[in-house]
Every structure is written in C-alpha cells, then in structure tokens.
Computed example of a mutant assay.
Amino acid sequence: MTHPYPDPGQQVFNDHRNLLFSVAYRILGTAVDAEDAVQDAWIKWSAADRSQVAEPKAYLTRIVSNLAMERLRSTRHKRETYVGPWLPEPILTIADTADAVTNAESVSMAMLVVLESLSPLERAVFVLKEVFGFNHAEIAEAVERSEPAVRQAVHRAREHVQARRPRFTVDRPRQSEVTERFLDAATGGDINTLMELLSPDVTLWTDGGGKVRQALRPVVGAQTVAAWFAAIGTVTYQGVDPADMKADLVEINGGPGMVFSGSGRVIATVTFDFDADGRITTIHNVANPDKLRVIAGGRPRDLGTH
C-alpha cells in the first residue's frame, strides 16, 4: 500500500543525498561502501525524532561522517592484507560544475590515495574542513570530539597531505590532450609517443586485487611503462582479444581518464597525474572487477560540496 502523503523527512534526506554520498566517498574511497553508509544514514534518519533537528544538513552530515569512519575502521584490515596495491574505487564524474576545480582535486585518485594513509579521524576532519568548509566547532560536533582535538587532527592531516599530494595542477585542456594522445599511442602500439608523454621516472600502480593478473608492485620508469601500454593492441587481456577491446575517454574522479571494455564488461580504468610540463608522473590502473561495478553502471555523479 502506498502512503497517501509523502514523508517530508524523505524529501529532506533526498535533497541532501548527493552531499552525503560526496562526504562518505571521500572518507572511504569506495563508492560501494559510501552507498552503504548513505543507506545506513537513511535508516538512522528515519528512526530519529526529527522535530528536534534544527539543521538537517549538519545533522545528516554528522550521521554519515560517523558511519563512514566506523566503516573505514572495519575495512582497514582488508586493505592492509590486500593482494598488490590498493587503489580507490573509480567513479564517473560530471565535468564543469561550478566548483569543478576544487572538487576535481579533492576527489582525484591521487588525493584519495594520499587520504588512505591518514587515520579515520584525520581523514574525516580533513574532508569536512578542507573540502566541505565546515568550521572546527561543526566538525567537533560531527565527529564527537572536542574542538582542540579537532584542530590538532586537522593540522596533522593538512601537513601530511601537503607533504604527499601531487605538486602541480595542469590545466584541464592539457590533461585532456595528453590523455587522448596516450590512448591513441597505446592502442596503436606507438612506443615513441608514449615515451614522450611519460616523465622519465613515471610510476604505474595496478590494482587487480588478486582477481585478475596485474603487477603486484609499482612499475617504474618510462621505458617499462611505455612497453606495458604499447602491448595493449597486440596481447589478449583478461581473456579479451585486442580486436574486441574498446577504449573510451571519460571523466573519472574529476579528471580525464580511460575505460577499457570488451566481452560485455568493463575491464579496467586508467587515470593520470601530471608534472608542471604536463608529462605523466603517475598512472593508476584499476582492474579489480569488484571495483569496476560502479563504472560499469555508467551513471556519472556530481560530487559537489553543497
């Protein structure tokens, strides 16, 4: 039986659902876990005495932040015992939102990899302060800590991130151009062009999660990395013949990326970090099928901060 009156609480929740997912995804680094945290937040919201809630946005953000931190603590062991490098779960994003530049960096694979090395509390307070602009008092309430403890955690997290985040931001047209040229060179087996596009000490991180064959350690150096990608057009990969392999340029985690698919499934995603000259310094290649379900769904997300 359908309820004759829509639940106003559901409308309020739906109005903030996108924000809640954006917070949870940045804290967790996986879309599946972020969706679960949002679902759990809905259950808590449904059971709450909403007449006592003055500011639903702050209240819901607090719920989802705590759920995401709990979930992060419980998944830590899995990530530490993971086969090969653990990379965040890539998602398709929407370009050209009003605060696209800030969002792009805060949700990039590079930033999510750096955030992975923070404690759950540091990660949550950093995301709420630096990305969503919450003040220390609001964060203290959200994570149920004292304000001085939050200030300290924000300071530690900020220093840690600044020491490890990529140093350069390359303009979007240049990123897109390099990504496009890389894709053409890789699918055409053009090793010389690949070498041109790669920084000499480029590092390739591949995440197969033990489900598919991937390098278990980072692959370093332009020559080796170029040879790896130049083979795309000539070798069977995960049981897919090169002739059946399709590569698309898409927006992944706020920047240009590539999705490889074949035999009716997504096989891998590839994203880049760049140096000041626009050469590729880091490549993140996600091939674990468990982490490609959201990409396969094909629905881009707006990871805005409002």
Rank of each mutant, 00 (worst) to 15 (best):
A287P: 00
L198W: 11
I280C: 00
A100S: 14
E35A: 11
R301A: 09
S176N: 06
T234M: 07
E55Q: 10
Q214E: 10
M1H: 09
L92M: 10
H284P: 02
E130N: 14
A54P: 00
T193A: 12
G255V: 01
S119W: 03
M245Y: 06
V286N: 02
L67Y: 13
V212C: 00
V220A: 07
L128E: 12
D190L: 05
V114H: 01
R50Q: 11
V212Y: 00
G209C: 06
Y25V: 05
D49M: 03
N135Q: 14
Y59K: 07
V178A: 01
T282Y: 01
D248W: 04
V250W: 07
V178S: 01
I267M: 13
N66Q: 15
H3A: 08
E35I: 05
A124L: 14
A226M: 13
H16D: 00
G304K: 08
M69V: 15
D40R: 06
E251C: 00
V219R: 01
M69Y: 10
V23W: 02
E141K: 14
L194V: 11
R73G: 15
V219G: 05
V154L: 04
Q175V: 06
A276T: 06
A100N: 12
E122C: 03
A215G: 01
T203G: 01
D302N: 15
H306K: 13
V38R: 04
G298S: 05
V127L: 14
L292G: 01
L72Q: 10
V107W: 08
R299S: 12
R181E: 13
T75H: 06
L121C: 04
L121S: 09
T179H: 02
A104R: 13
G255R: 03
A140M: 08
R299V: 09
V131F: 07
E144K: 13
R174V: 15
E141L: 12
G188E: 11
G297T: 04
P300Q: 07
V240H: 07
P85R: 15
V101T: 14
R217T: 15
T61H: 00
E80I: 14
N285F: 07
R76M: 12
L128Y: 10
R17S: 12
G9A: 10
Y59C: 06
K211N: 04
P90R: 14
V131G: 03
D49K: 03
R50E: 00
A68D: 13
Q11D: 11
S106V: 09
T234D: 07
P90D: 12
W228T: 04
A153M: 08
V12E: 05
T102P: 02
A48P: 00
A186Y: 03
L72Y: 08
F126I: 07
A95D: 10
T193I: 14
N103G: 11
V220H: 14
A58I: 09
E196C: 04
W86G: 10
E141D: 12
V212I: 05
V107L: 12
A163I: 00
A268H: 01
P120M: 01
S108V: 04
M195R: 13
A222Y: 09
I63R: 02
G264L: 02
D171A: 15
